[in-house]
Design a protein around this nucleic acid. Structure first.
Length: 772
RNA sequence: UGGCCCGUCGUCUAAUGGCAGGACACCGGUCUUUGGAACCGGCGGUGGUGGUUCGAAUCCACCCGGGCCAACCA
């Protein structure tokens, strides 16, 4: 049972759980409708890709649908190019919105009608203050706002003004439409938010049909409503907006079941510039070559770099969905890319930093062809290519060391290595130029060691890649790294619009020219993704590598445990980081909270005279009526206090005690039932939960829910035996010393008796039974 | 110093009052004509203090830490 659940179960994050629950309860009649709502004001990035996977993924899994909806309510930032790029990116990721392509701008007329409804209800008004006055009137996070002098304009006057706003009678900024909510709300967004503003601007789809445009908080929930969205998923920073989302929908008059908003953390990828606000200036100032510069984290950039879409989808799965604002390591993306490419990419050889090797005993001027498999033994794919071999080769400069470090498994003077797919060679002579730089290696090969002949299985230290010099193609290779070394620089560029570009990571783009590649690649489709053996995954740059230009992008490097080890050794000798001892253990006792003096006095009395625990006393003192009532039916103050301050409080979900469908007396009676041993405390909690949702009488509920306490050893014993029989392996584990399993057994007995069992008695029985 | 959200291995994420599990990373080993892959093993976690409970990562209180909110952007 357990085993099957572990690896292959579909991901179920908190949002999918909500969707599943809503589907099961029939809340939306089984419908699941999500949406991906980009604003067409830039290219999508990898963070959006995660949102796309979430929204389209949920729609697929629950057999619902997902709309692609452009949130195009701001005429000044949006355009057709971005619309096209977004569609291409989503399709490339492998998702399809079918016929559900939507534009917020198509709803302008309906949104306008909703605004008139709010005005007529007295819930929206036209404000004629200048922008700065509105801003100042809003107050700050710690100070309430002040009401606009236009706030009490009659609905008739607001309606007239609003219609004239639409008709184009006013200049930009002359008036706005605001919701009439609460200028003192602790949520800034509820302080009479602006719903409409005047902008005499050309909209890329609506042209000049409109000169008033709705703002996000007003528009977005209506868009969801118009499309019958069930689950409106957005990122954490919209958390504060949810209250307004609900306000608009409720007050325009949309009834349940209506759309609801849920927030998740989104993706924060280490080393990636992840906001359109920060990417745009980089593009505009030509710090990068365009929206698809492979150093960017846009979907277009990943596509151009050669990252397969499946890798991004895998990343989404690996990262998961939660509300924890968290940063994902680059290593996870790298892993996802390799994971997808490893079983797919044909292996070929390329030498990035060539060093000449002359095979002195190979017949001069001749060559031969080796049939070399495209895939290693553990990738079940067919195919091979002809690989030319000759007496002049290129090998990687880093594959030779005159003075090898410990553990070096490559070519050294007098040493041997195997050339991948070919022969074993020995380095006989090292040739240097006047500056002492190695320029050529003179080696001899052993003709009997040719790969695949099976005749020779000589043990050599290692295998290196190579390319036959006379047959080699010359290419350019581009290696990519993160754009900025730190986020400070990223912010700088965004602030100054990219004019004075902050320093880029010098390693963000490394262009390697004179790379030697085996000739077989000339015959391959241009979009082949290769593994250059021992180096990484590459493909031809679709822009600069077109036609005869051999330009390869490195998609991701291979994992390189040797380089890592060498790197560690170097760092260890260079920087011995000072260890600074920090003083710990300073007095960190919590300070008491400031409270109203009346409440404080009451709290002290509860604590000192009635023996109530201090923090319970504090909680109860704020609202004493309920507590005092409970005391009348159950005179044990500490007990009653715990029930109210702990158990009941956990069920309140923001409601006040007075709103509950039962009285203080009732909870007192419930507490008494437990103390008298007539029901278990655990069962009483279930009763309390029922009382909170439906009201009712504790004595009768204990009866009807079948929760009268069971401590009869005969009955309990039966349940115990049943549980032990069901978990033989766990019993064995327990007896082997895993004592934490006792809780599991108790829990199972409790479950079996629906919480009625006396847990103490159960525990005693269990302990006895397991000892024997 | 207002309101809201969030704190689980280094990182990401499960456990929804009952066995703290998985993945990435890292470290070892096996295997290997890629220092790749695969396989095996290891390291390592509930922010703190109290409380409720037979039993707390989970519920309650306080504290600490991080994030979001004061565009006529989304």
């Amino acid at each position: 049972m357990e085993r099957t659940r572990s690896a292959q179960s579909p991901p179920s994050d908190f949002i999918r759980q909500i969707v599943a629950a809503d589907t099961a309860s029939g809340r939306y009649g089984g419908r699941v409708v999500t949406r991906f709502p980009p604003e067409p004001n830039g290219y999508l990035h990898v963070g959006h890709a995660m949102g796309i996977c979430l929204n389209f993924g949920i729609a697929e899994e629950f057999r619902g649908r997902c709309h692609l909806r452009y949130d195009d309510t701001n005429p000044e930032k949006e355009n057709e190019e971005f619309v096209r790029s977004i569609e291409r990116d989503i399709r490339w990721l492998g998702f399809d919105w079918g016929e559900h392509l939507c534009f917020a701008s198509d709803y302008f007329e309906r949104m306008y009608e909703c605004a008139e409804v709010l005005i007529r209800k007295g819930l929206a008004y036209v404000d004629s203050q200048p922008t700065e006055a509105i801003r100042e009137g809003r107050g700050t996070v710690t100070e309430p706002g002040v009401e606009s002098p236009y706030r009490n304009r009659s609905p008739e006057e607001s309606l007239d003004l609003f219609r004239r706003m639409r008709a184009g009678e006013f200049e930009d900024g002359a008036h706005v439409l605001r919701g009439k909510i609460d200028m003192t709300s602790p949520n800034m967004l509820m302080r009479d938010p602006v719903f409409y503003r005047i902008r005499h601007a050309h909209h890329y789809r609506q042209g000049d049909a409109w000169c008033i445009y709705p703002l996000y908080d007003y528009a977005h929930c209506l868009e969801d409503q118009f499309e019958d969205i069930t689950h409106s998923i957005c990122t954490l920073e919209f958390d504060n907006n949810r209250e307004l989302y609900d306000w608009v929908l409720d007050n325009v008059g949309f009834a349940e079941p209506r759309p609801h908003q849920y927030e998740w953390a989104g993706l924060d990828l280490e080393g990636a510039v992840l906001s359109k606000r920060n990417i745009k200036p980089l593009v505009q100032a030509r710090v990068v070559t365009g929206w698809d510069d492979p150093r960017l984290a846009t979907i277009a950039a990943y596509r151009r770099r050669g990252v397969p879409p499946e890798a991004l989808r895998l990343l989404a799965q690996l990262v998961g969905v939660s509300k924890t604002g968290a940063r994902t390591e680059e290593a996870k993306l790298d892993f996802a890319i390799r994971e997808v490419l490893n079983p797919l990419a044909p292996r070929v050889m390329a030498v990035l930093d060539p060093l000449k090797v002359v095979i002195t005993n190979y017949p001069k001027g001749t060559s031969e062809e080796i049939d070399a498999a495209y895939f290693p033994h553990d990738v079940p794919r067919e195919g091979s290519r002809a690989l030319p071999f000759s007496g002049e080769l290129w090998i990687e400069r880093s594959d030779f060391e005159e003075r090898p470090p410990k553990g070096f498994r490559r070519l050294v003077p007098g040493g041997e290595v195997r050339l991948r797919h070919a022969y074993v060679i020995r380095c006989d002579e090292v040739i240097k130029d006047a500056g002492g730089r190695v320029v050529e290696l003179r080696c001899s090969y052993d003709p009997s060691t040719r790969s695949g002949t099976g005749a020779e299985n000589r043990k050599v230290k290692g295998t290196i890649h190579w390319v036959s010099a006379p047959h080699a193609l010359t290419a350019e290779v581009r290696l990519f790294g993160r754009l900025f070394l730190d986020t400070q620089h990223e912010a700088e560029v965004a602030e100054d619009g990219g004019v004075t570009a902050a320093p880029l990571n010098p390693g963000s783009l490394v262009v390697v020219r004179g790379v030697k590649v085996e000739p077989s690649i000339a015959r391959d489709p241009a979009d082949t993704r290769y593994q250059f053996e021992r180096t990484g995954y590459f493909w031809r740059d679709p822009v600069d590598g077109a036609g005869d230009h051999l330009v390869f992008n490195r998609i991701v490097a291979l994992k390189d445990t040797w380089a890592k080890r060498a790197d560690v050794e170097v760092r260890a000798t260079v920087t011995a980081e000072p260890v600074v001892a920090t003083a710990k253990g300073a007095d960190e006792r919590p300070r008491p909270r400031a409270v109203d003096p009346v409440i404080a006095a009451r709290s002290a009395r509860y604590r000192d005279e009635l023996g109530v625990a201090a923090d319970h006393a504090e909680t109860i003192a704020a609202d004493p009526a309920f507590f005092e009532a409970a005391l009348r039916t159950h005179a044990n103050a500490p007990d009653v206090a715990a029930w109210i301050a702990v158990d009941l409080r956990g069920l309140l979900e923001g409601r006040a005690l007075a709103e509950l469908p039962f009285s203080g007396e009732a909870i007192g009676r419930l507490a008494r039932l437990v103390q008298e041993g007539r029901t278990s405390r655990r069962a009483a909690k279930d009763v309390l939960a029922r009382m909170v949702s439906e009201g009712g009488d504790p004595e009768r509920l204990v009866e009807t829910m079948g929760l009268a306490k069971v401590s009869d050893p005969a009955v309990l014993g039966g349940a115990v035996e049943a549980v032990l029989a069901r978990w033989p392996e766990k019993v064995a584990e327990f007896r082997a010393g895993k004592s934490s399993l006792l809780g599991l057994f108790v829990g199972e007995v409790m479950k079996q008796t629906r919480g009625a069992a006396d847990p103490e008695a159960t525990k005693r029985l269990l302990a006895e039974r397991l000892r024997s």
